[in-house]
Nucleic acid binder design. Structure first.
Lengths: 181, 181, 181, 181
DNA sequence: AATGAATGAGGATTCATTCAT
DNA sequence: GATGAATGAATCCTCATTCAT
C-alpha cells in the first residue's frame, strides 16, 4: 500500500531544510544538500517543487507566514499594537540565528525573484499598516513617517543580527521601542 | 618595453564592473560578465585578481573606502558630527541604486568571506565611534545605545533602498536624523 | 526503483577506459576522453570518482591487482618461485602494449600521488619478498642483492617495452631468467 | 647598447631550469615556472624556443649529451669498456635526483614527441653498441643478448632511483656489473 | 634583448534537472 | 512514492602563446 499524504510532510521537511541550510551555508546551497538534510533524494525535491527557485520562494513564504502568525498572536494579547508588532518581529521563533540569516539571503534574492518580491511587499505593507494604526492610537504626531522609521529600524536590527550571529529578542525590542521615547 | 602601468587601471575597471554587475544582476554574476563589462577577457581578470572571491573582496573594500572618504569629507565641513556621518551614508555617490544593491550582496557574502567580514567590522566600528563621539558632543543622555540605533537605522534604510530601488539622499538623512528629535 | 547496480559496472568501465586512453595517448588524457571511451558523460565520471586523480589511482590499483593475481596464479602452479614471479610479470594480460604504457605513466605520476606511491611500495615489497624467498630456495648465495637486481631488471624490460611498443612475454622471461645463469 | 650573445646563455639557463623544475614537480610544470627559475619572463622563453615542447626536447637532448660526454670521458680513461658505460650511466652529474626524475618524465613524453623518441633511439643504439663491443672484448658468449640485458638493467635501476629518490653511484654500478659475475 | 599585457582554447568540476524503473 | 542513473550546460580557472613597446 502506498504511503498516503506524504506531500505536505515532504514539502514541509524540504522547506525547513532549505531554511536551515541557507541559514548555515549562505545562498549557495545545493538542492542535494537540502534534500539530504530533509532525508530524501534530490530527485524527490524536484518532484515536490518546481525547482530550486520554487523551493526558495516557499521557504521565504514560510518565514513570512510564521512572522505573520507571531504578529497575530501578539495582537491577540491585546496591549499596544506597535509593541506587539515589534515584539513579534523578534519573537524567538523568528529570531533564531539561522532563520535570520536565511531571511537575509532570501531578501537579497528577492531582487531577482518576482514571487519573493511580491511576498515581501505584502508583508511590508501589512507591517506598515499595523504600525501606523498603532501609532495613531498612541497619538503620535506623524504616524506615517514613524512607521517607516520603525520598519526600517527593525530591518536594520535584523540585518546586524544576521551578521553578528547574536540575537537577543528583548534587547532588540527595547532598542526599537526606544525611538518612540 | 611593453605597455606599462595597466595593472591599476585594469584592477579599478574590474572592481567597478564587479559592483555594477552585482548591483544589476545580484550575487550570481559570472567572472566573464564582469570582465566583459570591463572590456577585457576573463583570463585577464584572473591575471589581476586571485579569483572571483578576491575581486569581490576588493569591490567591497572599494565601496567601504568610498564611504569612508565621504565621511571624512563631511567631517571636514565642520558642523555636527552625527549629521555628517548620516549625510555621508546617503551621499549620492554611495547611494546609487547599483552600489546599494551591491553593498547588500557583499554584506550577505561576508557571512562567508573572512576578508569582507573583517572589513565590515572595521567600518562598523569606525561609524559607531564617530556616532558616539558626536552624540556625546550633543549631550545625548545615552550615546552608546543611540549610536547603535542610528547605525542600525542607517543599515535598515539602505536595505529598503536596495530592495525598492528608490534612494533619496535628503529624505533618508531626514528620516534618520528624525529619531534624534 | 531505479536502474540499480550500475556503480561497479561504470567504475570498472571507467578504469579500463582510463588505462586504455592513458596507454594510447599518454598522461595528458582528458576526463572527457576517458568518459567517452567508457560510453558515459564526463559528469558521470565525476559522479563515480572523486576526480581525475582518484580515477588514476584506481587505474593503478587495478593494474597492480591484476599483476598480483597473475603472480598468485603462477605460484599456484607450483614450480620455481622466482620463475613464477618473472613469468607473471610478463603474462600477456599485464604485458599488453597499452597496459605497459599506462603503467609507466602512473609510475611517473606516483611521484606526486601519495596513494599511487603507497600502492607501488606495497607491490614492490611483495615482489622483493617473493623473489628473495625463491632465490633462497634455489640456494642462491646472495638472495637479497639478486632480488633487487631481478626486480630492477623486470622494471627495465617493462620500460623498454613501453617505449618500443614491442612486448614478447617469452623473450622477456628468458632475458630476465638469463641473469641467474 | 644591446646585450650581445645572450642567446646561448638564456637557452642554457632555460634548459637547466626545465630539468630542475620537471625533476622537482613532475611533468606538469608550466612555462612560467621554468622561466621564473631561469630568471626571465615566460615571453622570453618563447623567444628562444619554439614552444614548450621544443624546450623539453632540448632538455632531453642536454641530458643525453651530458650522458654521452660522461661515457666518452670514462672511455678515455681506458679500462674495461662495459664498466665505462655503466659507470658513466651512474656518474654523479647524471645521477642527481632531479636529473633522474626529469629523465623519466622526458622518457615518458617521448611516447608523444618524435624528436625525443629519435634522440632516445640514437643513444640507446650507441649504448648497445658500446656494450656489445666491450662484451665481445671480454669474450662474453652472447654479447648481443647481454648488452640488451645490461641496458635494461641500467634503465631499471634508474627507474627505481627516480622513484625512491635515492641514488648511490657506486652501489648502482656494482649492482649492474654483478650480473656479469 | 626583454617583458608586461592580453587572450583563446581547453579542462576539471559542479549542479539543477530529467528519466526509467 | 521514491530514487539511482545520467547528462547538458555552465563556471572558474589555467596556460601556452602572441604582440606592442
Amino acid at each position: 500500500m502506498p504511503k498516503l499524504g506524504m506531500q505536505p510532510i515532504r514539502r514541509q521537511a524540504l522547506v525547513n531544510a532549505a531554511i536551515a541550510q541557507v541559514g548555515a551555508h549562505g545562498p549557495d546551497v545545493t538542492v542535494a544538500q537540502i534534500a539530504r538534510q530533509a532525508g530524501v533524494s534530490s530527485a524527490l525535491a524536484h518532484h515536490y517543487f518546481a525547482g530550486k527557485a520554487d523551493m526558495f520562494d516557499h521557504a521565504m513564504r514560510h518565514i513570512l507566514s510564521e512572522y505573520g502568525a507571531a504578529v497575530r498572536a501578539e495582537l491577540g494579547h491585546g496591549g499596544d499594537r506597535v509593541e506587539a508588532v515589534v515584539r513579534a518581529s523578534f519573537a524567538p521563533a523568528n529570531f533564531r540565528r539561522e532563520v535570520v540569516a536565511a531571511w537575509l539571503t532570501f531578501y537579497v534574492q528577492s531582487q531577482k525573484s518576482d514571487t519573493a518580491a511580491r511576498l515581501l511587499r505584502v508583508y511590508q505593507g501589512r507591517t506598515r499598516s499595523n504600525l501606523r494604526y498603532g501609532l495613531r492610537a498612541r497619538g503620535h504626531p506623524d504616524p506615517a513617517a514613524m512607521a517607516e522609521t520603525l520598519a526600517a529600524l527593525i530591518d536594520g536590527v535584523y540585518l546586524r543580527a544576521a551578521l553578528s550571529g547574536l540575537a537577543d529578542p528583548d534587547a532588540a525590542t527595547a532598542q526599537v521601542m526606544g525611538v518612540l521615547r
